[in-house]
């Protein structure tokens, strides 16, 4: 991905407020507030993200304190830490990662994307 399409909070930055993005956002420093996005959020190794996060996908190598919701996948890597609730369609959790909170993962999870219904092939639903 071109660097120009990426929103980056630098490692020496402290951002307070609400962040909205479409493609990719990368938190290298500190973030307080709320994050909404359609694309992927990257929380890097030394980052601290005190925020309620609602994104398409997320990859956590640093610390997240707040609820984390993703329509697609959440990757919690070995150095990653989450204190808050996780809701996602898919989740990968590496050995060594840390997570304290409620976990709901799967297409039926409230924030997860539900798969499109299978085509019925013109059949009528059975009458009760």
């Amino acid at each position: 991905m071109a660097e120009g399409d990426m929103t980056i909070v630098g490692s020496d930055s402290h951002f307070k407020g609400e962040l909205t993005f479409d493609s990719t956002a990368k938190i290298n420093g500190k973030f307080d507030g709320q994050i909404n996005g359609k694309g992927e959020l990257l929380v890097t190794n030394n980052a601290l993200c005190k925020a309620d996060v609602n994104v398409g996908a997320a990859q956590v190598d640093g610390k997240v304190e707040g609820n984390l919701t993703a329509k697609d996948t959440i990757k919690l890597n070995a150095n990653g830490s989450v204190k808050g609730d996780i809701t996602a369609a898919k989740m990968a959790m590496a050995e060594g990662s840390s997570f304290y909170g409620m976990c709901a993962v799967g297409p039926d999870a409230p924030g997860g994307a539900k798969p499109a219904p299978a085509p019925q092939g013109g059949q009528q639903p059975p009458k009760k």
Binding site: T73, K90, M91, A92, M93, A94, E95, G96, S97, S98, F99, Y100, G101, M102, C103, A104, V105, G106, D108, A109
Partner: peptide, 19 residues
């Protein structure tokens, strides 16, 4: 102490405390 979860695994709402 540790959890390893592959993508595709389903977790019904549950409280996790790791590690």
């Amino acid at each position: 102490q540790t959890v390893e979860m592959k993508p595709g695994a389903k977790v019904k709402p549950s409280q996790f405390a790791v590690p």
